[in-house]
Amino acid sequence: MNQTNYLLIALMSLLLMVSVSSESHASEKLRLTGQVTEIVVVEEDTKTVRLKMGFDLTVQNISDENVIIYKSDFALLSLNLFTLDKSGKELHLFSVGGRASNYESSEAILLQKELDKDLPPYDFTYLLGARESSSFKIETECVFLKSKISASANLSWDEISKAAPILIRLKLEVFPSYLKKQYESESFSAFELKNRWKTVGYLLLDDIVSEPVPLNLNDAVVKTDSQN
């Protein structure tokens, strides 16, 4: 990995710290909690450690009204690792960005037509009643540098592995960005759908940020050739 890539990682880390810390309107309607169910060291060399993490997550409607949720895979937008000092203040350890859902224009237009109904279509949405919850699983891989570079906000793998406690905050995409922004047209608006469907429930368009999820790196297992 060259110096240009290191600087790019550093810049992305800074932007993600700002992004994750911003308040989401989804937090007023939903609570996202979970636990780490899998930690695997997939690959390790002299410079990096690649870690695979699996999560069991639960989204709960904490409001008093129905929430309409688009049936998606909850794309991981960012993952932020932090620890706490003696006063409970959060201290940054590591952050990395995921990838928002991204469809070609023709597919987006097709989905717009499927969603453009008087009532939320069952095939593409589901209703989470007041105080109801739904569970799902996600997994992701992160690459940690063994040596910290000065331009990066991320700490080295050795520094991170010595921190305690280690907590994770995830940011997930609920409503696809390709339907919400760049492919909106005069004939389709996600915000118009939100207004149209309000007699059924609240259409959630905002991304959702999880509550802190504990991570114990002592539980990590090393992937062997037999696991390939």
Rank of each mutant, 00 (worst) to 15 (best):
N2M: 04
N5M: 15
Y6R: 13
L16W: 09
V20D: 07
S22C: 14
E23K: 15
S24I: 00
H25C: 01
K29M: 06
L30H: 01
G34M: 07
E38G: 01
V42E: 14
D45W: 03
T46Q: 11
T46E: 11
T46I: 04
V49K: 14
L51I: 14
L51T: 09
K52L: 13
N61L: 09
N61W: 10
S63F: 02
L76T: 15
L79E: 04
L79S: 12
T83A: 02
S87I: 08
G88Q: 12
G88Y: 11
G88M: 15
E90V: 02
H92P: 09
V96Q: 12
S101W: 01
N102L: 08
N102W: 07
E104L: 08
E107K: 15
D116R: 10
L119D: 11
P120A: 02
Y122C: 06
Y122S: 13
F124R: 14
Y126K: 11
Y126P: 03
L127F: 06
L128S: 05
G129Q: 14
G129T: 07
E132W: 00
F136G: 13
F136Y: 14
K137H: 14
E139T: 02
T140R: 12
T140E: 12
L145Q: 00
S152C: 13
N154C: 12
W157Q: 06
E159N: 10
A163G: 05
I168K: 04
I168P: 03
K171M: 12
K171C: 06
K171R: 15
F175W: 07
S177G: 15
L179E: 10
K180H: 10
E186Y: 04
L193R: 09
L193W: 07
K198A: 03
V200L: 00
Y202V: 03
L204M: 11
L215H: 12
L217T: 06
L217K: 01
V222P: 02
V222A: 06
V222T: 13
T224Q: 09
D225H: 08
N228I: 04
